[in-house]
């Protein structure tokens, strides 16, 4: 089993280590105490300050269980978890944590302002700071016009946004995001990813779990792949995705007439399975381009549909 944990039996002394787990496991039991499901098999993990760490895996792989164990929402069957050097069940660690649950479980009878005010009070923030921070976060997640509406009237995307705002109310050092792009449209998804990158730029540590591979790939520095409660892969995203034995060459402004010449040069050097053509953009990029263009030129057909990166747009 891959492992990145220290083998020391002491708590992490390295100030850069934000999260550490040692043989952390969780087995759900039935009423009689019989093992029902091993949600997480012994896991050793170390997450450092300032990185975006992704927990990746299919449904039921143990991602959310790991996150709940780190938050102290559930108790480990064996092993230990430390956050900021404190046991995961220590409430004081939460001062420095922001958490966005999978479905933004918030109080539906509150409006956006009341929601943020409530969570701000839980951090003991003074009234002026609560008001200032709430207004800034509501502005940031684009809910200014809907700030007086009760959350029961919000769409799923809006609920997700206010969920993000409550996770950031205390300007946390460590942000845990459970399926952060779930329920968001492509624009919201992109904004969320931009936000995660922005958090990293501000020195925050982000742990996110998702089964949307593209999202993880776009933002994470390191990932852990879980399957059936077991850690299967752990490492930097760029290293894990690097395909050895195949060389990629990108060039702009190359005319089609030059393709054969390039192919011949590559053949001379023994290259096999040579492909030359225009790369494709992602559907997300295409969609965002269409939306931006439509907003810039209302009533016209979007130009983005006919452009490609190779054309230089």
């Amino acid at each position: 089993m891959p492992s990145a944990a220290s083998t020391s039996s002491n708590r992490p002394s390295d100030a850069d280590v934000v999260v550490e787990t040692r043989n952390l496991s969780k087995i759900y039991r039935d009423f009689w105490g019989r093992d029902k499901k091993a949600a997480l098999k012994p896991l050793d993990l170390e997450i450092r300050r300032g990185e975006i760490f992704g927990l990746l895996g299919p449904n039921g792989s143990g991602k959310t269980t790991t996150m709940k164990l780190l938050l102290g929402l559930i108790f480990p069957t064996s092993g230990e978890a430390f956050v900021f050097g404190k046991p995961a069940t220590d409430v004081s660690k939460n001062e420095r944590i922001g958490y966005l649950p999978e479905e933004s479980y918030l109080y539906k009878f509150l409006d956006a302002e009341e929601t943020l005010d409530f969570y701000g009070r839980l951090f003991g923030m003074p009234p002026e700071e609560r008001a200032r921070r709430s207004a800034a976060l509501i502005e940031m997640v684009g809910l200014t016009r809907d700030r007086k509406r009760q959350l029961r009237e919000y769409s799923k995307g809006m609920t997700r946004r206010i969920g993000v705002a409550q996770a950031l109310i205390n300007d946390p050092e460590l942000v845990l995001l459970d399926e952060p792009t779930s329920g968001l449209d492509p624009i919201g998804t992109r904004e969320m990813k931009d936000l995660i990158i922005d958090l990293k730029a501000r020195g925050k540590t982000v742990i996110l779990c998702s089964h949307l591979l593209a999202d993880v790939e776009d933002v994470c520095d390191r990932i852990a792949v879980l399957h059936q409660g077991e850690l299967k892969e752990l490492g930097r995203v760029d290293e894990l995705l690097r395909v050895t034995g195949i060389t990629q060459i990108r060039a702009g402004g190359l005319p089609p007439a030059a393709y054969e010449e390039v192919r011949a040069v590559l053949a001379r050097h023994g290259a096999s399975d040579v492909e030359i053509g225009n790369p494709t953009t992602t559907l997300e990029d295409l969609f965002l381009e269409v939306v931006r263009d439509t907003e810039a030129r209302p009533g016209r057909r979007a130009r983005a549909a006919a452009t490609t990166p190779a054309d230089g747009k």
Binding site: L71, G72, V91, N94, Y99, P101, Y105, Y119, L122, F123
Partner: peptide, 14 residues
């Protein structure tokens, strides 16, 4: 049941 408690217990609340 609604899991709203999770957003409270993950704050520094005893």
């Amino acid at each position: 049941k609604s899991k709203a408690i999770q957003t409270v217990t993950t704050k520094p609340v005893r």
